[in-house]
Design a protein around this nucleic acid. Structure first.
Lengths: 359, 359
DNA sequence: CTGAAAGCGCTAACAA
DNA sequence: TTGTTAGCGCTTTCAG
């Protein structure tokens, strides 16, 4: 447990040169010339001693900590957060930054959020990432602006900070299009009752796709309930009990889709033979656990984390003097993850399947 | 974006005292005496200027960064990891430490793990937490020992590092006991085929409970399959197709329980009327999404994160000179989360329920 | 009770 | 091409 205490001066002594030379060589300082021989000598000495720079000292001197603070709301409640962290961490690491994490409460008061930002600022982080647990508009703690910042999964009311959000609308369009392509015409939408951008965006996407296929939007085909399995069950039951029941269901999220599976089961509707289902969120626990596997749309959490760090670093390092970046939220696309819950309508006979495909 | 540059000297100037005094007062340095008047003056000045200490400078001087490094395997793959992070972060924060996170690959080679540790060491972290994504024995990167360390969810082959693991066996015992208490005698165990401590521990717990109730352990009541929903389905189907089918199923994890639900459904067995089920892991996405809600056992991820940080801090601050702590893994208990999947056997009639309870 | 000054490990003028 | 040295912001002896 002997604390590593080999410093630049030890390396210098071992290599028989000055600390300056060591610093120059180890940092590849531009314009600093050193003979190849010296370079090797220094590098070898450093390696032999197991030297690693003291980043605090470096930071103190250079006024750059190479740390990025991630302020994340309720890190634990969703598996999604993990992906954001992963995307952010891997990208940060690639650029030799380190991620420090602070968990903040979604419902924390302004004072406590302020303290969270202060804690990060005291650590001299070079920039701050602010991640919310689902897509929405937020107002930011004031001191956040003392340092470059980027928002993840939310938009900034003031429009000053770059942000990235998922393409809810496009994702929904993709999902419904997959159903359309399989030959479905009557597609129900099991949606939710929350007033959040995802709700509106996904409905829009549903309409886009359906109307794009020349089908008139039928409000009777959308049923809204709470965004849980129970809500999905209720909504699906409602939709599927209609006389002219839809042959496919697009569900607001995988949890609701889980409820829809149960409804289908009770009604004796086989998936995907008599009913196709597509979800949203790609919660693998659900999507892979359901039988048959649920075709769904993935949220780009990893990508958002990665994009945010990249953008933040650009801001920090000032490559882009023009910080026009904040103008518009950067929308990242939501790809379809195909599993086994989509088939042509009336797929009970193999022949029917072919027919529908060439419809 | 003007970087905060108010330092201790600014505060000193504003308060009309020396930097020493400011430092003493702001840090509540023991034995440092200052008049109440001076104290107030300094505090007010600091607040007015919005002063916050530069932790890097502090760290450089004191040789303590007040940062804890968390090396976590595959942070994203499981919602559990989020809970560990949350427990660790909240506890760290309470003690005025900050968490820095590095994601490492479960299957990364030794060199890359070594680099991960080095990165943390360069940051001068005061201690390192090493979290694996599921309970198992690991061998640790060598330089980890340069600093106090604690393991989460795994045990150390060398026995040098304190570690915390879930009480798999006790958790299983709790689960099965709940079934026993409801009046079940024939309890099937849907288990898995992985050779990990959780598999063995949960089986042991199952046996403990069953035999504790005076029932002979019947190997015919345990069916092992891969630990996925599909495996759970297969195993449950097998168990439930027997003539003297079990009236209750204890499942290795919630995913397998999800499969068991499907098997029960296909067999026309209502849960919990004709079949009680309890899972393990408390994956809320599944446990709450299933109908009826799945009674299951929770893994103490939050608690492990919290315990680990507490222990690490004690090590760092040397309150316990004796570091006997590593002798045994600290086993944290797994509480039962009751939902709606357990009822007395043959609970179809209300009367039967009462009878069974007083069995 | 308060202040002056040394120095943590490093980088970057500047000097040689 | 390499070396000397000031200082980043702070804590902490040691003197007043």
């Amino acid at each position: 447990m002997a604390r590593k205490t080999v410093g630049i001066r030890d390396v210098a002594a071992a290599a028989g040169v000055s600390v300056t030379t060591v610093s120059h060589i180890l940092n590849d300082t531009p314009h600093a010339r050193a003979s190849d021989e010296t370079r090797k000598k220094v590098r070898d000495a450093a390696a032999a001693l197991g030297y690693g720079p003291n980043r605090m000292a470096q930071g103190l001197r250079t006024q750059r900590s190479a740390m990025i603070g991630l302020l994340s709301e309720d890190i634990a409640t969703t598996p999604h957060a993990g992906m954001i962290i992963k995307g952010a961490e891997e990208t940060a690491r690639k650029h030799d930054y380190t991620l420090v994490i602070i968990n903040t409460d979604k419902d924390a008061d302004t004072r406590s959020k302020r303290r969270d930002v202060d804690a990060l600022l005291e650590r001299q982080v070079d920039g701050i990432l602010y991640a919310t647990m689902y897509h929405r508009a937020v107002s930011l703690p004031p001191r956040l602006f003392e340092v470059p910042a980027v928002l993840i999964d939310s938009t900034d009311r003031t429009g000053l900070v770059p942000c990235t959000i998922p393409d809810e609308r496009g994702g929904a369009r993709t999902a419904v299009t997959a159903l359309l392509d399989a030959g479905h015409h009557r597609i129900g939408f099991v949606t939710n009752t929350d007033d959040v951008p995802a709700t509106h965006g996904r409905l829009q996407g549903y309409r886009d796709a359906v109307q794009g296929a020349g089908i008139t939007f039928d409000p009777g085909l959308v049923a809204a309930q709470e965004s849980e399995a129970a809500g999905g069950y209720a909504a699906a039951k409602e939709l599927l009990s209609r006389e002219d029941r839809p042959t496919a269901l697009f569900c607001y999220n995988d949890r609701m889709a889980m409820g829809a599976y149960r409804a289908a089961g009770e009604l004796g509707l086989g998936i995907p033979e008599q009913l196709s289902v597509v979800g949203f969120d790609n919660q693998t626990l659900i999507a892979e656990g359901l039988f048959p596997g649920l075709t769904t749309v993935a949220l780009p959490h990893y990508e958002m984390g990665a994009w945010a760090v990249q953008t933040l670093i650009r801001l920090i390092e000032g490559h882009d003097e023009e910080k026009l970046l904040a103008d518009e939220a950067t929308i990242l696309s939501c790809p379809l993850i195909r599993r086994d819950s989509v088939a042509p309508p009336h797929a009970s006979t193999p022949a029917g399947a072919d027919a529908a495909l060439t419809d």
